[in-house]
Design a protein around this nucleic acid. Structure first.
Lengths: 169, 169
DNA sequence: ATTTTATGTCAGCCTTGTTGACTTTCCAAG
DNA sequence: CTTGGAAAGTCAACAAGGCTGACATAAAAT
């Protein structure tokens, strides 16, 4: 898994990226993502929820009090689609939607204790796999992994990603 | 985006992986995957196809002549689900399903010229994004990226992944 | 007072996954 | 040669989770 490189006069790294190398990267992305979602999916099944619920729970946990609109932007889905998911989470007592203090049109979203418990169960599983992969690949690989993923994101999303709590740890 | 590390006596790298670092990795995976699928999705729309068609086309292009059963394993879906997709591709003349020479129960799948054209259109877009991300992140990052993704895959899938044409280029 | 924004909701549609049942074809072992 | 099992295809029904479009309400902003 080596990658050719040359240095231009200016010092910019130019890569020899063959189609084959890029195709392998594409496949790696696909297969890894499948594994990445497999553990939470199994857990969600036993709770009668789906991936969409997981995503909502994840971001509400990440930024407690975020508004529906912000969540919509993070998830990149329509409000109708999100609403269906959010409604069941509120009804089931995993999420609390408080009327905004400053702007009463807004709803600030929070996980209840029950919601936080499911979040923990899900993210424990997902982090375990991520941790194992990190350990297997080593620290240098982890940095590269994150760099490539960040470079791959759409710019607006990347801004949101980088703005989220923690940033570069 | 630095990552702590220590060396044990044995020389195994031990990472200081905080929950925050792992969560960022999880989010990076999610956002990057979304971007990763966005370009092909746009193209597919104009052709009246979906992501499932893309996947089938991708792997048939990768291993011309592979059987339905092998494709089933690569994709990890049921034959009913795959069949629906495959049928439209054959009907539309993008894929040819030839009866196996040795075992006439098997169907060997091939892209027609029309199918290969769509494959090129899709993978050109996907490779362009991958190439840009690789360029931005640099050669060392690319190696790390692939290492982490491989470590994240389920072992059986990883075997198939590694066995596929090219391997480590 | 009017317009705009944030949210919620109803109805209907599509893709893509699932399970279960059943058929046809054909290889291979008894 | 017969029979068991594997590969493939198909039908039906269902669910999750996307989408669009239309519409309602409350509150902020103009």
């Amino acid at each position: 898994m080596e990658v050719g490189r040359t240095e231009t006069g200016g010092g910019e790294g130019l890569l020899f990226l063959t189609d084959e190398q890029l195709r392998k990267g594409i496949e790696a992305m696909y297969f890894a993502y499948r594994a990445f979602t497999a553990d939470p999916d199994r857990i969600l099944e036993t709770h009668e929820y789906g991936r969409a619920h997981h995503r909502a729970i994840h971001f509400i946990n990440r930024q407690p009090g975020l508004t529906v609109n912000m969540l919509l932007i993070m998830l990149g889905v329509t409000k109708q689609s999100l609403n269906r998911v959010l409604r069941t989470l509120v009804e089931d007592g995993l999420v609390e939607a408080r009327v905004g203090r400053r702007d009463k049109r807004e709803r600030n979203l929070f996980l209840t204790e029950k919601g936080a418990a499911l979040e923990r169960e899900l993210s424990d599983a997902q982090r375990a796999r991520m941790r194992a992969a990190y350990r297997a690949a080593g620290p240098a690989a982890v940095t590269g992994f994150r760099q490539v993923l960040e470079a791959m994101m759409d710019p607006e999303i990347r801004r949101h990603y980088q703005a989220m709590k923690d940033g570069a740890a």
